[in-house]
């Protein structure tokens, strides 16, 4: 899953080497924390959060077939 998020995000940004995905998991949910270079924030969020929404849609659909736990994607600044 981490790999999926990186695959989606890296080609979209100007600093692919600064894309980081961290995992925060507890008993009933999994949170993937995505951080990118400050200048790339806008690129991964997009106008009206459009890109962020698209990323989440894909991750959630992949996640639901993976494991049963509720999955979230957070973008950290």
């Amino acid at each position: 899953m981490k790999q999926l998020i990186e695959t989606i995000v890296k080609p979209l940004v100007d600093y692919p080497e600064e894309v980081r995905v961290e995992l925060d998991e507890n008993a009933n949910r999994i949170v993937y924390k995505l951080s990118v270079h400050a200048e790339d924030m806008g690129k991964v969020i997009g106008k009206q959060g459009r890109v962020a929404k698209a990323i989440r849609t894909i991750v959630y659909s992949a996640a639901s077939s993976h494991h049963k736990k509720k999955t979230y994607v957070d973008i950290l600044d």
Partner: peptide
Amino acid sequence: VLIGKRGQTLNALQQLSQLVANK
């Protein structure tokens, strides 16, 4: 899996592909 509920996943993928293409 690629289409998703009411084309959600497909639309998301389309949006991201568009960004990559225009890059």
